[in-house]
């Protein structure tokens, strides 16, 4: 018997987190022309930062000796569960802090990365950022205080003190959707502003934008700070939702999934990115249900998912290179075109 409410909460939670990534990737790649193949780097960094703050800091404030009982050990996990169920104000406070720190640190990390990468073309930007994701994963594997290969467990969900799993899940979902809405509003405001028009001009021809006096590197850096920051927040939300982090969660396949979302939805439109996230997270949540096919199939059904998503993505790109939902022209362009037609007639 499938628990429909549980399934919906789980799906929508994944949707909200991935939609944040998709909307920011749409702003970076579809609108600003920054080819980010290292989305998982910022997502993973945010997740690890969230995990560290929500475990180490929580334990330290509560007076637990983190050297004797680090959060990746059984003692640490037990202490974390006790603290998070008994002290709501502290858990919520530390969680809020982790969100802020994630935003700032991943944002600054993204900003600093733009210094070397804005000097080269899109292929190199994509490659360099892809490397960043793999390098960070290598670092997580070698860092013992975050659990190395095994990662960390017992990261408290900030509403766990409510006692009812369904209710705490719902509250967390509301929080994630609120952050998604904030991401969307910020992106939409940028798109409608003069900065949005500048970004589109940079995407279409950065040399022309440069010749027109636009400070292309600076504008790209600012956008990358913002989008990296939001990706970090998505990472923290993810870490606290699944209550664990490990290096295997942050492989290149995650970046590929987010790209698939914006391609299916339409890379130039934040709404398209959200729709893409909605469709693909639904497929991802449904696919585990066919894991029961394992006894009928001669191979692991999990391998079908990337093949399936890759095929959809390739076919969509060949047929509709701008995605299924292309961005409508802004109102001012529409009215200008209408005026031109009127004058001509």
């Amino acid at each position: 018997m499938i628990d429909i409410t549980g399934f919906l909460i789980n799906w929508l939670e994944y949707f909200a987190i991935y939609a944040i990534l998709a909307v920011t990737l749409s702003l970076e790649s579809g609108i600003s022309g920054i080819t980010n193949f290292g989305k998982v780097a910022f997502f993973g960094l945010g997740a690890y930062l969230g995990a560290i703050i929500n475990t180490y800091l929580l334990l330290a404030i509560s007076g637990v000796d983190v050297v004797k009982a680090p959060p990746y050990t059984a003692e640490g996990v037990i202490a974390l569960i006790e603290i998070s169920t008994l002290n709501p104000a502290l858990v919520l406070g530390v969680f809020t802090l982790s969100i802020l720190v994630s935003f700032i640190v991943t944002g600054v990390f993204g900003y600093l990365l733009t210094y070397p990468i804005i000097r080269v073309g899109s292929g190199f930007v994509g490659f360099t950022l892809l490397c960043v994701g793999e390098v960070l994963r290598g670092i997580y594997v070698n860092m013992e205080f975050v659990g190395g290969t095994n990662g960390m467990l017992g990261i408290p969900q900030p509403f766990i003190w409510l006692g009812i799993p369904m209710l705490s899940g719902l509250c967390y979902l509301l929080l994630s959707v609120t952050i998604l809405a904030l991401t969307y509003i910020v992106t939409d405001r940028i798109l409608g502003s003069p900065l949005g028009r500048t970004l589109r001009s940079i995407r279409d021809d950065d040399i022309a934008a440069l010749c027109l006096g636009k400070d292309v590197p600076k504008i790209k850096s600012k956008i990358f700070f913002l989008t990296s920051g939001f990706s970090g927040v998505a990472g923290t939300l993810y870490a606290c939702y699944v209550s664990s982090v490990n290096p295997q969660m942050f492989v290149t396949l995650v970046t590929f999934n987010v790209w698939a979302m914006i391609i299916i939805g339409g890379s130039e439109s934040p709404i398209g990115a959200i729709i893409g996230a909605l469709i693909l997270t639904l497929i991802e949540r449904i696919l585990p249900l066919i894991a029961s096919l394992n006894e009928y199939l001669p191979f692991t059904p999990d391998y079908l998912r990337p093949v399936f998503i890759g095929l959809i993505m390739t076919i969509v790109l060949i047929k509709y290179p701008r995605g299924l939902i292309s961005m409508k022209p802004p109102k001012f362009i529409k009215s200008a075109v209408e005026e031109l037609i009127r004058e001509a007639s």
Partner: peptide, 26 residues
């Protein structure tokens, strides 16, 4: 299409080929 579309498509191809190979190996 732009070079970005080529790159993303090639990434899609990469995962198709890789996981088809996983299936064949199994």
């Amino acid at each position: 299409v732009s070079s970005n579309v080529y790159m993303v498509t090639s990434m899609g191809l990469w995962f198709i080929y890789q996981y088809v190979l996983y299936i064949v190996c199994q």
